[in-house]
Structures are given as C-alpha cells and as structure tokens.
Design a protein around this nucleic acid. Structure first.
Lengths: 245, 245
DNA sequence: TCGCATGGTTAATGGTATTAACGAAGTGAT
DNA sequence: ATCACTTCGTTAATACCATTAACCATGCGA
C-alpha cells in the first residue's frame, strides 16, 4: 500500500484549496477590496489567525487568488484559440481576443486584479512574477510568428523605428520568447493597445451611456486589426456569439 | 457693510474645503482604498462622525474627491490644448493627448478613481453623472469638428457602419454635443480606444518590465493617430517634454 | 514512546465605518 | 434680549476588519 502524502499534508492541501476557492468567490462577489481574511476563515470553518499558517496575511491571500486567476485566464484564452482551425490564423486571433473580452466582462472584479488597478497594487506589495505577460504574450506571439512566417505581414523596417522604442521592443520580444523582427513586435503592441483599451472601457463601463453592449465596437476593432495584419476574416466568424466560461 | 454668508456658512465651507483637500491628499498617497474617513477627520481636527454632517459617509467622501478630480483633470487637459496655436489642430491633439497621459502618470491613484476601476465601483454606489465623458468628449469632439470642417478627414460612410454600432455612435454623438457624421464619431472612438489602452497600460505598469518609460510608445501612437486623421505633425512637437502639473 | 514541528485555538491591540444619544452654540423671529 | 429651532459638534456603542502573541493538542518521525 502506497503511503502517499501524510494525513496532515492532505488536510493542509484540502483546506488551502477550499480557502483559495472561497477567496476567489468573495473577490468575484464583492471585488478585491471586499475580500476579507475573516470571511474566508468563517467560510472554511476556521478562526482568522489560522489562515496565517497558509497565507502571508491578506496580501498573501490576494496573491493566491491572483495565481489561480492567472491559470484560469490563460487556459481559457488558449483553449478558445485551440478550438479553431489550426490553419485559420484569423479565426484564432478572433477567438483569442474575443475570449479575453468575454472572460473579462464576465469577471470584472477578477479582471481588475489580473490586468487592472488591482494588479498595480498587488505588484507593489507582493513580488509577483510576470507570468501573465509572458504567457499571454507568448500565446499571441505564436500567432504573430505564424503570420510572419506565412509572409505578407506588412511591418515597419527596423530602421524606421525610433531607437528608444526599438530597445524596448527588443526587451519585450525576449520576454515573450519570440524571434520575429522588431517591426512585428511593434505591430503586436499596436494591436494590443487597442484591444486593451476597448477591454478597459468595456469592463469599467466607460461610456456605458452610449456603448452598453460593447460587442459592436469589438467587432469593428477586430475588423481593423485583421485588416492591419492582412488577414482575411472568414464570414463564419461574424456570427460568433459569446462563449461563456 | 455687506453681511454675506453667515459665520456658520463660512466655517462650514472652510471645513468642507479642508476635508476635501485632505481626502484628495490621502487618495494620492495611499490610493482610493487607503482613503479613510477617520484619517480625514483626524487631519482636519474633528471626530469621525462629524464628517457625516458634510458627506454621505465614506462613499460621499469618495464622490467629493471624484468631483474635485474631474474639475482638475478637465481644466488641465483643456489648458494644455489652449496653450497651442489655435490653427494647428495637430499640435492641439498632441498636447491634449499628452496632457492626459502626463496627468495620469503623475496621479495614478487619482486616475484609477477618475477613469479606472475606482470609477466603476463609485458609479455603482453613488449616482455619478457623466460629466467627465461629456467634458472630455466635448473637448476632443471640438477638435474633430474642426478637422472635419477643414475637410480631408477620411471617415467611413454611414452605410459602411454596422447598424447596431451606428446607433450607439449616434447616442454618443448626442452625449458630447457634436454635429459631425457618424463616421467621424467612429474615427474618434477608434483613436480613443488606443489612447485609453496605452494610458491604462502605462499607469498600471503593465508590461513595465519592457516598457518602463512609455513615452516612446506614446510617440509612436500619436504618429499613427495623426496619420489616420491626415494631420501633419510639425517637427517642433517631436521635442515636446512632459508638462508637469 | 518521546520530542518536536505543525496547525489550530483564544485573547488582545488597534484600525475601520456607522448609528444613536446628547449638548453647545449660532440664527432668526418675536 | 430672549426664545425656540436648527446646525454641528461631541462621546458611546456596535460591528466589522487585520494582525500578533501566547498557548495547547496532535500528527509524525526517530
């Protein structure tokens, strides 16, 4: 008979899992600032100080939620891309971008922690590694790599780019582990600033008085971006509805 | 001798002003969530419950800060635009956009409350009117109006725009009180999603590992946008340094 | 079986928001 | 000038919250 992890280790793992899940639930329900150590303790049937054996106080708890969210977000987005035809890069770009939007709209409090103001706060008090930037950048980076390899991607030449910017782009390219020219990195960042802008607008209900449903804006943006990348958008994608979860 | 406002009224106004300023200071120093009623009370030399005579609890205090910030932000940006040559629309667009960036980078906590996650939270618990959207939209809208009147602005025709989107754009146009065609509204929103995206990235230190100084990205974006609008960028602007305050 | 690391407890400290009950003092009318 | 009323402050109490300290039971390895 395998001994496996000890009773203690199993108990510990189970309680930690439970606490993380409850913390996530509270975050979703009441925002990052509505997350309280005490409430989590209450929910998992333990006294507040007990959680200090599991997390480094409240900031540790928030960090744990952040980690879980990172995993969930990255796998959601990459799953959405993998669901498409491997040859249809346009469809994959659409699906990935759309998944980012859908997840964020469906989980605004979590979005805040993952990619909004919550992240900035978190990053100052806990040493959080750039896993999201790497993973998400890598995911989109792979798509851009294939676009570039396929040819026909119209990107600026190295010497057309301001040297200061070029250095930064090179750093970023290294971060996401890609090999394409800086001009392609620039193209990627150009896309991302638009996606991220619309994302923040949507999630924060900016201009909500006019743009309650932000899908029309999103569709228009995707058209712009795919055109910029010289990718044909197959008609089938235009009917794509939001993918929940 | 004029009686003017009574002693009571003067005292009240003075204390409220003091409290608002202190609240603003605390927000800047410790973020929106670091703003506490008690701390403000302590700073203005009064007991915490006293502030309930002035503000509707904490959410009222936050709302007051929001109002003050709105004024400051709008006047900062419009002042920056007015400082430029009235005939040089490109310079005005640059200056206004740059002022938005500079103010936001210099006041990250305030930015969060004004245009980030803090706003979303605030808007749910307090009835906040859309003054910022109107004012800022109006400011940029005026520039776009003049661009359009001058001619040469390449915008999509009405019937090239998806009907659902067109309706939203019309609503937005009414909100900002402009008269130009929907295609121009769309152009404006296209610019704004880029500005706002870069803004959020910069303020939240997204991708900070590569883009610590975000001005190169900003300069590249402005080039893109001015090209999109068919505006020549005068060489003088390229040397423009950040304007503090 | 013993000793210790682990993981829980309660108690205490100090911070927060908010409401209630109360009192001093400014204000305006008689 | 005095009176009543409103305004604006107070203190006290309640109920959260995070965090640390002191303590105790128990699982686990030697």
């Amino acid at each position: 008979m395998q001994t496996g992890p000890s009773r203690r280790a199993r108990m510990r793992a189970a309680l930690e899992r439970e606490a993380r899940d409850e913390a996530r639930r509270l975050t979703a329900a009441h925002g990052v600032e509505g997350l309280s150590l005490s409430a989590v303790a209450r929910a998992v049937g333990v006294s507040p100080p007990a959680l200090y054996r599991y997390f480094d106080g409240k900031k540790g708890l928030v960090l744990a939620v952040y980690e879980d969210l990172t995993d969930e977000f990255v796998s959601t987005v990459s799953a959405a891309a993998r669901r498409e035809d491997p040859e249809d890069l346009g469809a994959q770009l659409y699906a990935a971008t759309r998944a980012v939007l859908d997840w964020s709209l469906g989980h605004p409090a979590e979005f805040d922690l993952l990619m909004g103001a919550g992240y900035a706060r978190l990053a100052t008090e806990s040493a959080v590694d750039q896993v999201l930037a790497r993973e998400l950048g890598g995911l989109f980076g792979d798509l851009f790599t294939r676009l570039w390899q396929r040819g026909g991607l119209d990107h600026p030449a190295d010497d057309e780019i301001d040297p200061a910017l070029r250095d930064q782009l090179l750093t970023y390219r290294r971060l996401i582990g890609q090999e394409f020219p800086v001009g392609v990195v620039l193209l990627m960042v150009t896309c991302w600033r638009q996606i991220y802008g619309l994302l923040c607008m949507s999630v924060h209900h900016h201009l909500a008085a006019a743009f309650g449903d932000c899908v029309p804006l999103f569709e228009h943006m995707i058209d712009d971006l795919l055109a910029l990348l010289g990718v044909e958008r197959s008609p089938a994608q235009r009917t794509g509805a939001a993918v929940e979860r």
